[in-house]
Design a protein around this nucleic acid. Sequence first.
DNA 1: ACTCCTTAGAGACGGTACGTCTCTTACGGT
DNA 2: ACCGTAAGAGACGTACCGTCTCTAAGGAGT
Lengths: 188, 188
Amino acid sequence: MERRRGAELEGVLLDAAWDELMESGYARLTMEAVAARAHTGKQVLYRRWRNRAELVIAAMRHRTGSIVENVPDTGSLRDDVLGVLRLMAERFATLGPDVVHGLLAEAPDLDPEIYTRMTSVMATIVKRAAERGEIPTDDLPDRVLTAPTNLLRHEMLFARDPLPASALTSLVDDVFLPLVSGRPGRSG
Amino acid sequence: MERRRGAELEGVLLDAAWDELMESGYARLTMEAVAARAHTGKQVLYRRWRNRAELVIAAMRHRTGSIVENVPDTGSLRDDVLGVLRLMAERFATLGPDVVHGLLAEAPDLDPEIYTRMTSVMATIVKRAAERGEIPTDDLPDRVLTAPTNLLRHEMLFARDPLPASALTSLVDDVFLPLVSGRPGRSG
DNA sequence: ACTCCTTAGAGACGGTACGTCTCTTACGGT
DNA sequence: ACCGTAAGAGACGTACCGTCTCTAAGGAGT
């Protein structure tokens, strides 16, 4: 019997968790099923992750890269923001609402981080746009900066059907661009 | 042994569920505990609600009135919107993140309804403001209309700490009012 | 090459809560 | 007075949790 170890074993475990996630969703993913799929015992999982949520998060990180490390830079504010929203929507689509709802409920400590990260992405995009002279200032309230990403996240969380493409453009054209273009400096 | 029936029994059941909810949160609320607290059996619960989520939703509806039936009308757009946001925040505070996260995960069919309702509330408020001449038009894109309530909901879902009062005013002053005041008619 | 030590692989175990089923009996309707 | 519905109570089988135990594989050290 060949016995896996170290990084090799860990990779197998995370792949097994990911496959279970795709097949059963979060709610019906069990530690037993992940262990069985990886041809090992539960203890091997519990030795590395304290619970389902941690395992699933690790599996997601193992699979998908971070948006933070891949900020769009197209030369157009509109396209940059749209690019970020598309990345978010794409990722959400592969994960499915199940997973996000589940993690929200079971890993609340992680939740604030998820959306704090996005603030810096938006700040980068807006700063570039201001430097290009596309908008008057990059000194915007945080809630303006994160409005499009937060609204998108909200919509993905609550909508039952997949989002139409028009949702993304509406968020940019109806909400974000009006807020950053014509307005004077920050109010508070 | 006095045996409860009909509306009386139902009230007792919903009260028991509500009390359990307040005491244990959603994740640790069990049908067994609710039944025990109401001095009855589980079957009495399952005869009325198919699962935990339905029971909890019924208990919430039984306790708290609808925001829809109580649209603020202060004569000021800003105060009306703030009033709605305060109602939402207050309700969320009594329920706790647990409950909302849990329902989001276990009652996804209900989720879209929750925020669709708010659209009509905001439409009413905006219409009144337009009639008063406070804003140029009440013909706004849905995503502008629901931006403040959706952003608040998002923030409540993801924030770990209770929201500061400034969160509400920022949503109104930095995001909503700029969108509805200075802009021309809808773009799309 | 031999020994030691960690830990993989496998499964048993007790615990909790689910949702169903069964049984007796209170009580409202006719 | 009778009958049918459903309350009250709890047993039951199932699922999965997280812990614990045991054997033996296979690196590390000498």
